[in-house]
Amino acid sequence: MEAFTQHIGTAAPLRRSNVDTDQIIPAVYLKRVTRTGFEDGLFAAWRNDPSFVLNQPEYDGVSVLVAGPDFGTGSSREHAVWALLDYGFRVVVSSRFGDIFRGNSGKAGLLAALVTQDVVEQLWTTIEADPGTKVTVDLENKTISAGDVSAPFEIDDYTRYRLLNGLDDVGITLSHADEIAAYEATRPSFKPATLPAKA
């Protein structure tokens, strides 16, 4: 995973609440067995609508998405995060995220920045007044700024640490292999196993 310290880019306002992961990428786009190429499925239903925000030329090349509350609810599909990354987003800002989506973001290198709804509204106003406004997201200091708006955002310390250092979770955990083996030795014999199969 690429390390994330600071990001500067333009932003798109997504004035919708409850944008579930089926909206971010519908199920029919989940059939790939590769890790990339999901940008074609991003907001697929809405991309057909000429008035959709990402179809506006002034929002070409955006890398920050400022969304309404409850962004990323629903399905656990990490493809939603991959689709946002593949499209070019590095940061999603919202006042509330679906838990699994937020976890997936941290694993895949997309920064999910949690702010108050008031800050979301201020960012929307600022961006819409001038879509060329540069948004600066500073993970070191946990701040987001754009035009006259400057506000702190929340992210859990561990995800922040991993993103700042671009760390691979599996590698970290495998460094505790002894502790996993010690735990396994204490598991009771009545715990089920899938093998051998019983019918």
């Binding site: 599909r77 976890g103 694993k107 599996v170």
Partner: peptide, 21 residues
Amino acid sequence: AFGIGTSEVEHVLATQTLMQA
């Protein structure tokens, strides 16, 4: 019992554990 993303699927396959707050 809870749902996880693909990165976590890989993590469980490799380690039989998950990091969870």
